[in-house]
Amino acid sequence: MIVPRRLLLTVLGILMFFTLVTVGAAQLEQAIAHQFDIVIPQWVNVAVALSIAAVKTLFVMAIFMQLRWDNPFNSLIMVFTVFTLCFFLGFIMIDLGNRDSIYPYKSKYIVEGGSGNITVAGGSVPAGTSIAMQARIWAMEKADNILIKEKGTLPKYLVIFCSQEIERQLAAKKTEAEFPPVLKEFMKVRNQAPYAEILAAASHGHGKGHSAGGNTANRSRSRTGLTDPELGGKPADGHGHSGSAGQAEKPATAGEPKAGEHK
């Protein structure tokens, strides 16, 4: 079977259209949530994205890969493959979504973001420090190096980091006098170019609901299972979570206090 060129071009057009639809749907969803201040559960996002991807896949397989005219056994292979994948994913989700009872046992070994005691290319992470926290310590050193020792200009992501770090330190009830030198230095320059523009842009783009404290860990998983209406679809500001059994066991949020301690 020779697929006519026109048909191939039509399918290409359809694929492009659906690609734009999937981007548009994601944007629209965000806009709606923002506009009407509602929370759209996460499964909507997943379901829409996966359905569109599945439709696109059907077109590619049926026309581009010529399954429509092919030996039906080849289609059967793919059907079995998808079944296998569904079993694989489904049963594991059933298990991991229903593990409240063992979480308390597991949680005492958990330092959020990893417990450290490993050596990597960039240096070693001491025991008891998470990789995520270590990232902030390293960033502080890096900013210190650039701003104070080299008198250079911070890259964008470090500007945002310093600004957020100041808020975190304030939230941890530190006075400005207790700040590490690099933050004191940063406070002096943050209203000048180019930092002011970067911060303005960042607060514009990132503003909605993301508190600088980095305490979205509050919204971490609830281990109550697939039927939990809140699964995944937490409000962006993280309030009003019904405390589940697992939730009560969680250590304090990693964000605020520790950043100060390590300095």
Binding site: E112, G113, G114, I118, V120, A121, G122, V125, S130, I131, A132, M133, Q134, A135, R136, W138, A139, M140, Y157, L158, I160, F161, Q164, E165, H210, G214, T216, A217, S220, A254
Partner: peptide, 13 residues
């Protein structure tokens, strides 16, 4: 994983 060194995370995971 262990090579992660981006400070502006919002979740330790």
């Amino acid at each position: 994983g262990a090579f992660f060194s981006y400070p502006n995370w919002e979740s330790p995971y």
